[in-house]
Design a protein around this nucleic acid. Structure first.
Length: 458
RNA sequence: GUGGUUGUAGUUCAGUUGGUUAGAACGCCUGAUUGUGGUUCAGGAGGUCGUGGGUUCGAGUCCCAUCUUCCACCCCA
């Protein structure tokens, strides 16, 4: 008895037509990354639990997919922990490995492990799937691809500029016309916490004000209170919820606001440096926007933070990232500042689908189909097929001498642009007959003319 | 992880207060057309109503569980 096959919640199969579009995204991204001097690497799908745990905050730990221990190792299960409802301790006793949650932390591990083989500043990109035990929603999957580009071993703000240019170039090249790069600096957030005298509540303050867009001013104030931020501090923060103006005006206002905080002013200085340079260099389609309330939950960011949203689609961010000064320190290597961003390929796909941005020409890979008229004609076609392939023309032959209608329909369904017919007439006259499917036009010509025609195509 | 929501043919969806043999469109197959697809016409095949229990004389319809979908929260690409 066979049950209906299905796949796990939040995962997907990709059909050839989908893969064509996904590969278009990946190759666009790769091309830009390489143009800026980044080289590809890969890391394993599963990592030791200890490598991943504790790097993403409490919420993050909960969302890590754990992999069960095998065989005898399982016998070490801490049954007492289970009885006492210490679920985390029990989980650790039966699992010491997990699927990667993102590409940044494994990369930090990679840098520390291979530090002697790398040239710093080390620029790498990495395109691989990651897994999160989250509850799926639109644009939210349990398995999805991240396209990360990072540089470690330099504090230079040139890399912040470079990453903004990469955002702009990739998304513009893909045809996404209306998107905003939100930009902020963790030091500014630290400064805000200092100025209001609640430096110890930095995380609570950032998590709360990050939600301004979503829950509004009153919602944020309520959340701040719930998180134990005192009223004096809330009154100091309050004006930030009504800040208006362009990037330059915001910088002026925030400089005033943060005048008592050394860290805060340092953040403003870094941010201004980048904003000024970008202003001079110009951007293609991106809007760059300083957002004081942009925080991002990932706790390892220490400097610049980025987030990119597509303005015409209601979906979470399509890219994100920032600077981290201490990530490699967790694996025993100090003084390695890094900055990087991640493109969410699956969300970019969803955005492009919704806005109908994929080029039409992506659908078919086969250019020429040979009609099969029988054994003799088939053998003859085979040698011509080989010739076409030698010319880098993607071609195939129908596997049986089925009815013409069926073979034509196959070409039509696969959107193959040319059909070649070689029957006894053509063999006798040493010619081929080809049909252009879109126009329906049919010609008899020499093979060489046909090859010339195809190789001249764009 | 919390609360809600969804599931009927390959696909998108109808299906009355619980009542005979569960329908449509598109797609698919066959033929009109034995060397011509995308249009047209004629015909045909496809469903254990997500799965497992329960209530009932009787369940696609009501109840419970489970899986899945989408949404809000949490968090995030």
């Amino acid at each position: 008895m066979s049950t209906k096959p299905s796949i796990l919640k939040g995962t997907r199969d990709f059909l050839p037509s989908t893969m064509a579009k996904r590969n278009f995204i990946f190759s666009t991204i790769k091309t830009v990354f390489e143009k800026y001097g980044y080289a590809p690497i890969e890391t394993p799908t599963i990592e030791k639990t200890e490598t991943l745990m504790g790097k993403y905050g409490e919420e993050g730990d909960r969302l890590i997919f754990r992999v069960l221990n095998l065989g005898d190792k399982l016998a070490k299960a801490d049954v007492n922990a289970l009885k006492e409802a210490h679920l985390v301790r029990f989980a650790n006793s039966i699992s010491d490995k997990a699927l990667r949650y993102d590409l940044t932390v494994p990369f930090a591990r990679f840098v520390v492990q291979h530090q002697n083989d790398l040239t710093f500043p080390f620029k790498r990109y990495q395109i691989q799937p990651v897994w999160r035990a989250d509850r799926p929603q639109k644009g939210r999957y349990r398995e999805f691809y991240q396209c990360d580009v990072d540089v470690v071993g330099s504090e230079s703000l040139l890399y912040e500029i470079e990453l903004i240019q990469i955002f702009d170039e990739v998304l513009s090249n893909l045809g996404v016309n209306d998107f905003t790069i939100k930009f902020n600096n963790r030091k500014i957030l630290t400064g805000i916490a200092e100025v209001c005298g609640q430096a110890d509540k930095l995380t609570d303050i950032t998590v709360a004000i990050d939600k301004l867009d979503k829950i509004g001013k009153d919602g944020v104030i309520k959340e701040l209170k719930d998180r134990g931020v005192n009223d004096t501090a809330i009154n100091i923060i309050n004006p930030l919820f009504e800040l208006e103006g362009n990037n330059d005006e915001l910088v002026v206002k925030m400089t005033e606001f943060l005048k008592e905080s050394k860290v805060g002013l340092k953040g403003i200085e870094e941010l201004t440096y980048v904003l000024d340079r970008i202003k001079k260099l110009g951007l293609n389609k991106a809007k760059l926007s300083f957002e004081v309330t942009l925080a991002r939950g990932l706790s390892y960011y220490t400097g610049a933070i980025f987030e990119v949203v597509a303005n015409q689609v209601k979906m979470g961010s399509i890219c994100g990232g920032g600077r981290y000064d201490n990530l490699t320190e967790l694996f025993g290597l100090k003084g390695m500042s890094g900055v990087g961003v991640s493109f969410g390929a699956d969300r970019i796909y969803d955005v492009m689908t919704e806005l109908n941005l994929f080029p039409k020409s992506l659908t078919s890979s086969t250019q020429v189909l040979f009609i099969n008229f029988g054994e003799k004609e088939q053998d003859y076609s085979l040698s011509i097929l080989k010739l076409l392939r030698n010319h880098q023309i993607s071609a195939e032959i129908y596997p049986t001498s089925a009815k013409m209608k069926k073979q034509m329909k196959y070409a039509n369904d696969k959107q193959i642009p040319y059909v070649v017919m070689i029957g006894s007439n053509e063999i006798e006259t040493n010619t081929i007959t080809y049909k252009e499917m879109e126009t329906g036009e049919q010609n008899n010509s020499s093979l060489n003319n046909f090859i010339t025609l195809l190789t001249k195509l764009p």
